[in-house]
Simulated assay, not measured.
Amino acid sequence: MWTWFHRLASPPFFFRLAERWAPWLGVAALVLLAWGWIGGLVFAPPDYQQKDAFRIIYVHVPAAAVSLSLYTLMALAGAVAVIWRMKLAECVLVATAPVGASMTVVALVTGMLWGKPMWGTYWVWDARLTSELVLLFLYLGVIGLYRAFDDPRAGARACALLAIVGVVNVPIVKYSVEWWNSLHQGSTIMKLGKPSIALEMAIPLYAAVAGTLLFCGYAILRRVQNELLWRERGTQWVRELRVGEPGR
Protein backbone atom coordinates (compact mmCIF):
# COMPACT_ATOMS: atom_id res chain seq x y z
CA MET A 1 0.00 0.00 0.00
CA TRP A 2 2.79 2.42 0.90
CA THR A 3 5.05 1.39 -2.00
CA TRP A 4 4.10 4.46 -4.06
CA PHE A 5 4.83 6.73 -1.09
CA HIS A 6 8.34 5.37 -0.56
CA ARG A 7 9.00 5.39 -4.31
CA LEU A 8 7.93 9.02 -4.59
CA ALA A 9 10.22 9.86 -1.67
CA SER A 10 13.22 8.49 -3.55
CA PRO A 11 15.39 11.49 -4.59
CA PRO A 12 16.32 10.19 -8.08
CA PHE A 13 12.72 9.14 -8.81
CA PHE A 14 11.30 12.49 -7.71
CA PHE A 15 14.00 14.42 -9.58
CA ARG A 16 13.13 12.71 -12.85
CA LEU A 17 9.40 13.06 -12.18
CA ALA A 18 9.82 16.80 -11.55
CA GLU A 19 11.95 17.11 -14.69
CA ARG A 20 9.08 15.62 -16.67
CA TRP A 21 6.22 17.60 -15.16
CA ALA A 22 7.73 21.01 -14.33
CA PRO A 23 7.66 22.33 -17.94
CA TRP A 24 3.98 21.40 -18.26
CA LEU A 25 3.20 23.20 -15.02
CA GLY A 26 5.05 26.26 -16.30
CA VAL A 27 3.17 26.34 -19.60
CA ALA A 28 -0.21 25.81 -17.90
CA ALA A 29 0.62 28.56 -15.41
CA LEU A 30 1.44 31.04 -18.18
CA VAL A 31 -1.77 30.23 -20.06
CA LEU A 32 -3.96 30.60 -16.98
CA LEU A 33 -2.22 33.76 -15.80
CA ALA A 34 -2.58 35.33 -19.24
CA TRP A 35 -6.27 34.41 -19.28
CA GLY A 36 -6.85 35.68 -15.76
CA TRP A 37 -4.90 38.92 -16.05
CA ILE A 38 -6.10 39.91 -19.51
CA GLY A 39 -9.67 38.95 -18.69
CA GLY A 40 -9.57 40.76 -15.35
CA LEU A 41 -7.44 43.79 -16.14
CA VAL A 42 -8.85 44.48 -19.60
CA PHE A 43 -12.23 42.86 -20.24
CA ALA A 44 -13.94 42.57 -16.83
CA PRO A 45 -16.46 45.36 -16.17
CA PRO A 46 -15.57 47.96 -13.52
CA ASP A 47 -16.95 47.48 -10.03
CA TYR A 48 -19.99 49.63 -9.25
CA GLN A 49 -18.35 51.03 -6.10
CA GLN A 50 -14.59 50.70 -6.53
CA LYS A 51 -14.58 51.30 -10.29
CA ASP A 52 -11.29 50.22 -11.92
CA ALA A 53 -9.42 50.22 -8.60
CA PHE A 54 -10.87 46.76 -7.91
CA ARG A 55 -8.74 45.22 -10.69
CA ILE A 56 -5.79 44.79 -8.31
CA ILE A 57 -7.66 41.77 -6.94
CA TYR A 58 -6.41 39.76 -9.94
CA VAL A 59 -2.94 39.95 -8.43
CA HIS A 60 -3.71 40.44 -4.73
CA VAL A 61 -6.26 37.67 -4.17
CA PRO A 62 -4.24 34.89 -5.90
CA ALA A 63 -1.07 35.90 -4.02
CA ALA A 64 -2.88 36.00 -0.67
CA ALA A 65 -4.66 32.67 -1.22
CA VAL A 66 -1.52 30.92 -2.41
CA SER A 67 0.55 32.32 0.48
CA LEU A 68 -1.73 30.40 2.87
CA SER A 69 -1.75 27.25 0.73
CA LEU A 70 2.04 27.17 0.54
CA TYR A 71 2.46 27.57 4.28
CA THR A 72 0.08 24.66 4.78
CA LEU A 73 2.16 22.63 2.32
CA MET A 74 5.31 23.62 4.20
CA ALA A 75 3.82 22.52 7.53
CA LEU A 76 2.69 19.18 6.05
CA ALA A 77 6.17 18.61 4.61
CA GLY A 78 7.59 19.49 8.02
CA ALA A 79 5.35 16.92 9.71
CA VAL A 80 6.46 14.23 7.25
CA ALA A 81 10.10 15.22 7.79
CA VAL A 82 9.75 14.96 11.57
CA ILE A 83 7.74 11.71 11.61
CA TRP A 84 9.37 9.74 8.79
CA ARG A 85 12.66 11.70 8.46
CA MET A 86 12.30 11.81 4.67
CA LYS A 87 14.96 13.85 2.91
CA LEU A 88 12.54 14.77 0.13
CA ALA A 89 10.08 16.27 2.63
CA GLU A 90 12.90 18.37 4.06
CA CYS A 91 13.72 19.61 0.57
CA VAL A 92 10.07 20.49 -0.12
CA LEU A 93 9.95 22.39 3.17
CA VAL A 94 13.00 24.55 2.54
CA ALA A 95 12.15 25.01 -1.16
CA THR A 96 8.63 26.23 -0.40
CA ALA A 97 9.61 28.92 2.11
CA PRO A 98 11.14 31.48 -0.34
CA VAL A 99 8.27 31.01 -2.81
CA GLY A 100 5.69 31.43 -0.07
CA ALA A 101 7.49 34.47 1.29
CA SER A 102 7.46 36.04 -2.19
CA MET A 103 3.71 35.50 -2.51
CA THR A 104 3.15 36.99 0.94
CA VAL A 105 5.15 40.10 0.00
CA VAL A 106 3.08 40.47 -3.19
CA ALA A 107 -0.14 40.08 -1.17
CA LEU A 108 0.96 42.70 1.38
CA VAL A 109 2.19 45.24 -1.18
CA THR A 110 -0.85 44.95 -3.44
CA GLY A 111 -3.10 45.05 -0.39
CA MET A 112 -1.47 48.30 0.68
CA LEU A 113 -1.89 49.77 -2.81
CA TRP A 114 -5.54 48.74 -2.77
CA GLY A 115 -6.03 50.07 0.75
CA LYS A 116 -4.92 53.62 -0.08
CA PRO A 117 -7.89 54.51 -2.35
CA MET A 118 -10.33 52.38 -0.33
CA TRP A 119 -9.36 53.28 3.27
CA GLY A 120 -7.36 56.45 2.72
CA THR A 121 -4.16 54.86 4.09
CA TYR A 122 -1.65 52.23 3.00
CA TRP A 123 -1.58 50.38 6.32
CA VAL A 124 -3.67 49.86 9.43
CA TRP A 125 -3.12 47.32 12.18
CA ASP A 126 -6.11 45.39 10.96
CA ALA A 127 -6.53 41.73 11.95
CA ARG A 128 -6.12 40.44 8.38
CA LEU A 129 -3.15 42.65 7.53
CA THR A 130 -1.38 41.97 10.82
CA SER A 131 -1.81 38.18 10.64
CA GLU A 132 -0.60 38.20 7.01
CA LEU A 133 2.47 40.14 8.16
CA VAL A 134 3.04 37.49 10.85
CA LEU A 135 2.85 34.90 8.05
CA LEU A 136 5.70 36.69 6.27
CA PHE A 137 7.78 36.67 9.46
CA LEU A 138 7.19 32.92 9.80
CA TYR A 139 8.38 32.32 6.24
CA LEU A 140 11.45 34.49 6.84
CA GLY A 141 12.05 32.66 10.11
CA VAL A 142 12.16 29.33 8.31
CA ILE A 143 14.54 30.72 5.68
CA GLY A 144 16.86 32.26 8.26
CA LEU A 145 16.79 29.26 10.57
CA TYR A 146 17.74 26.88 7.78
CA ARG A 147 20.71 29.02 6.80
CA ALA A 148 21.88 29.19 10.42
CA PHE A 149 22.77 25.46 10.44
CA ASP A 150 25.82 23.92 8.81
CA ASP A 151 24.09 20.54 8.72
CA PRO A 152 21.16 20.80 6.26
CA ARG A 153 19.27 17.90 7.85
CA ALA A 154 19.47 19.41 11.33
CA GLY A 155 18.45 22.78 9.93
CA ALA A 156 15.50 21.27 8.08
CA ARG A 157 14.27 19.50 11.23
CA ALA A 158 14.42 22.79 13.18
CA CYS A 159 12.52 24.50 10.37
CA ALA A 160 9.96 21.71 10.39
CA LEU A 161 9.15 22.35 14.04
CA LEU A 162 8.78 26.09 13.40
CA ALA A 163 6.55 25.45 10.39
CA ILE A 164 4.32 23.06 12.34
CA VAL A 165 3.92 25.46 15.27
CA GLY A 166 3.34 28.42 12.96
CA VAL A 167 0.56 26.74 10.98
CA VAL A 168 -1.85 27.93 13.68
CA ASN A 169 -1.60 31.34 12.00
CA VAL A 170 -3.15 30.06 8.76
CA PRO A 171 -6.76 29.82 10.04
CA ILE A 172 -6.23 33.14 11.85
CA VAL A 173 -5.42 34.82 8.52
CA LYS A 174 -8.28 33.05 6.78
CA TYR A 175 -11.01 33.81 9.32
CA SER A 176 -9.72 37.06 10.81
CA VAL A 177 -12.33 39.14 8.97
CA GLU A 178 -15.06 37.01 10.56
CA TRP A 179 -13.62 36.73 14.07
CA TRP A 180 -12.79 40.43 14.57
CA ASN A 181 -14.03 43.80 13.38
CA SER A 182 -12.03 44.46 10.24
CA LEU A 183 -11.65 47.08 7.53
CA HIS A 184 -10.73 44.27 5.15
CA GLN A 185 -13.66 43.04 3.09
CA GLY A 186 -14.87 39.47 3.49
CA SER A 187 -14.11 36.61 1.15
CA THR A 188 -15.56 36.87 -2.33
CA ILE A 189 -14.63 33.57 -4.01
CA MET A 190 -12.66 31.59 -1.39
CA LYS A 191 -15.74 30.54 0.56
CA LEU A 192 -18.54 28.01 0.65
CA GLY A 193 -21.61 28.85 -1.34
CA LYS A 194 -22.11 31.23 -4.26
CA PRO A 195 -19.28 33.75 -4.84
CA SER A 196 -20.27 37.33 -4.01
CA ILE A 197 -18.84 38.61 -7.29
CA ALA A 198 -20.24 38.74 -10.82
CA LEU A 199 -19.42 35.72 -12.98
CA GLU A 200 -17.61 37.79 -15.62
CA MET A 201 -15.31 39.04 -12.86
CA ALA A 202 -15.03 35.72 -11.04
CA ILE A 203 -13.93 33.51 -13.95
CA PRO A 204 -10.71 35.48 -14.68
CA LEU A 205 -10.05 35.56 -10.93
CA TYR A 206 -10.33 31.78 -10.68
CA ALA A 207 -7.95 31.49 -13.65
CA ALA A 208 -5.47 33.85 -11.99
CA VAL A 209 -5.60 31.89 -8.73
CA ALA A 210 -5.05 28.58 -10.55
CA GLY A 211 -2.25 30.09 -12.65
CA THR A 212 -0.50 31.52 -9.59
CA LEU A 213 -0.76 28.17 -7.81
CA LEU A 214 0.69 26.30 -10.81
CA PHE A 215 3.46 28.86 -11.21
CA CYS A 216 4.44 28.40 -7.56
CA GLY A 217 4.28 24.63 -8.07
CA TYR A 218 6.71 24.99 -10.98
CA ALA A 219 9.05 27.17 -8.90
CA ILE A 220 8.96 24.76 -5.96
CA LEU A 221 9.68 21.73 -8.15
CA ARG A 222 12.73 23.46 -9.61
CA ARG A 223 13.96 24.53 -6.18
CA VAL A 224 13.47 21.00 -4.84
CA GLN A 225 15.51 19.67 -7.75
CA ASN A 226 18.32 22.11 -6.95
CA GLU A 227 18.21 21.19 -3.26
CA LEU A 228 18.33 17.48 -4.08
CA LEU A 229 21.29 17.94 -6.43
CA TRP A 230 23.19 19.85 -3.76
CA ARG A 231 22.45 17.36 -0.99
CA GLU A 232 23.04 14.30 -3.16
CA ARG A 233 26.02 15.69 -5.08
CA GLY A 234 28.26 12.79 -4.06
CA THR A 235 25.83 10.00 -4.97
CA GLN A 236 25.93 7.76 -8.01
CA TRP A 237 22.68 9.00 -9.58
CA VAL A 238 23.85 12.62 -9.54
CA ARG A 239 27.18 11.63 -11.09
CA GLU A 240 25.25 9.80 -13.80
CA LEU A 241 23.20 12.93 -14.47
CA ARG A 242 26.38 14.95 -14.84
CA VAL A 243 27.83 12.39 -17.26
CA GLY A 244 24.63 12.65 -19.31
CA GLU A 245 24.82 16.45 -19.62
CA PRO A 246 25.58 17.87 -23.10
CA GLY A 247 29.26 18.47 -23.67
CA ARG A 248 30.39 15.83 -21.19
Rank of each mutant, 00 (worst) to 15 (best):
M1T: 04
M1H: 10
F5S: 06
F5K: 08
H6R: 09
L8N: 05
S10V: 04
F15N: 12
A18R: 06
A18F: 06
E19K: 11
R20I: 15
R20N: 10
R20Y: 13
A22C: 07
A22L: 07
P23D: 06
L25K: 00
A28G: 08
L30M: 13
V31T: 03
V31I: 09
L33M: 03
A34N: 06
W37N: 08
I38E: 11
G40M: 02
V42W: 11
F43L: 11
A44W: 00
K51E: 12
K51A: 15
K51F: 13
A53Y: 10
V61C: 01
S67K: 07
L68Y: 05
L70K: 04
Y71A: 01
A75R: 01
A75G: 01
L76C: 02
A77G: 03
A77W: 02
V80A: 00
V80G: 00
A81Y: 06
R85C: 08
R85M: 10
M86A: 12
M86V: 09
K87N: 01
L88K: 01
L88C: 06
A89K: 01
C91T: 09
V92K: 07
V92R: 12
L93F: 08
V94K: 04
A95T: 08
T96M: 06
V99A: 08
G100I: 04
A101R: 03
A101M: 07
V105N: 01
V105L: 09
A107R: 02
A107C: 06
M112D: 00
L113F: 05
L113Q: 00
K116R: 09
P117T: 00
G120E: 07
V124E: 04
A127L: 03
A127C: 07
A127W: 00
L129C: 03
T130Y: 03
S131K: 03
E132K: 08
L133Q: 13
L135D: 15
L136A: 12
L136R: 12
L138I: 13
Y139I: 11
L140W: 02
G141N: 06
G141Y: 07
G144W: 13
G144T: 02
Y146I: 14
Y146G: 05
R147H: 15
D150H: 11
P152C: 10
G155C: 10
G155R: 06
A156P: 09
A158R: 05
L162E: 00
V165M: 07
G166D: 01
G166N: 02
V168M: 11
V170A: 15
P171N: 10
P171I: 13
E178C: 11
E178N: 14
L183R: 14
H184V: 04
Q185W: 13
G186L: 12
S187P: 12
I189C: 08
I189A: 15
M190N: 10
K191C: 08
L192H: 10
K194G: 09
S196N: 14
I197C: 04
L199G: 05
I203C: 14
P204D: 04
A207P: 11
L214H: 09
F215N: 15
F215C: 15
A219E: 10
A219N: 06
I220D: 05
I220V: 01
R222W: 12
R223E: 10
R223L: 11
V224W: 09
V224K: 07
V224I: 14
L229G: 03
E232N: 05
R233Q: 12
G234D: 12
T235D: 03
L241S: 00
V243G: 05
V243W: 09
G244Y: 11
G244M: 14
E245Y: 08
R248P: 09
